[in-house]
């Protein structure tokens, strides 16, 4: 599993602090042996969903399953019927693309953390840049499963869960607004948070925060002298 996850990508080290710490070496996740409870849960899931499953992983005791896009809705039905997951925790999306303008370039924003500029896809991999993921739980059996699926990059569409979990309504509207993922079968998809005239999908990585472009945060580097300090002219 996690076959296409490359080794730890070499981080472009902008903050010249290499001597200070080597924190990333503390506990790199070495594809941990699957917890038996999680494995049993996955077996149930796979038995019911069949070949819709692409990949799975155990991420700190939570089962993460990646399913084929056309099995997305069936995965919800299976989770609800066969895994007793009666509780919908959330539905959201993720954009695996590295932010196009990494911090630390000439100009621009220097205060944001530097992310690796290679595209990696998390614990269960992905085919493309965009993914939709959801977490459902059981209130009686006390387990939960995270379900992921890939969506196409231009014109992403996936089936709606509203008929399985009515609470999916708002979550899908949010995901549509934030990532531009369309949910076919959703009764009426429209803006949830932002005013109707808002343009862009804020959570996509290529959506830049204008305030940061215009006026980068000075960061931790240069601290202004306090008013009481002995400066040239104390014009308090």
């Amino acid at each position: 599993m996690a076959d296409e996850t490359p080794d730890t990508p070499d981080t472009p080290d902008a903050s010249a602090d290499d001597a200070v710490t080597d924190a990333s070496a503390v506990a790199v996740e070495e594809v941990p042996a699957i917890d038996p409870a999680v494995a049993a849960l996955f077996e149930r899931f796979e038995a019911a969903l069949g070949d819709g499953v692409v990949d799975h992983a155990d991420s700190f005791g939570t089962l993460v399953v990646r399913v084929k896009p056309d099995a997305w809705k069936r995965a919800a039905e299976v989770a609800r019927a066969d895994l007793d997951c009666d509780y919908l925790s959330f539905i959201s999306g993720i954009d695996w693309m590295p932010a196009p303008k990494p911090a630390g370039d000439e100009g621009g924003d220097t205060s944001a953390p530097v992310q690796p500029d290679t595209m990696t896809f998390g614990v269960t991999g992905s085919d493309g840049r965009l993914q939709v993921f959801a977490h459902v739980q059981s209130t009686t059996r006390h387990w939960g499963v995270t379900i992921k699926t890939d969506v196409a990059d231009p014109a992403p569409t996936v089936d709606s869960w509203v008929s399985v979990y009515p609470g999916a309504d708002w979550h899908e509207r949010e995901c549509w607004e934030m990532y531009g993922v369309d949910f076919s079968g959703h009764p009426k998809i429209r803006h949830l948070y932002l005013p109707g005239e808002f343009e862009g999908n804020p959570l996509r990585k290529d959506f830049a925060l204008l305030a940061r472009e215009v006026k980068p945060w000075p960061g931790l580097v240069d601290v202004e002298p306090m008013p009481g300090d002995d400066t040239e002219e104390g014009d308090s």
Binding site: F207, A211, W217
Partner: peptide, 13 residues
């Protein structure tokens, strides 16, 4: 001035 959300896309500064 926008406070902790000084760089947010939806907050009036």
């Amino acid at each position: 001035c926008g406070g902790p959300y000084w760089d947010s896309y939806s907050v009036t500064k």
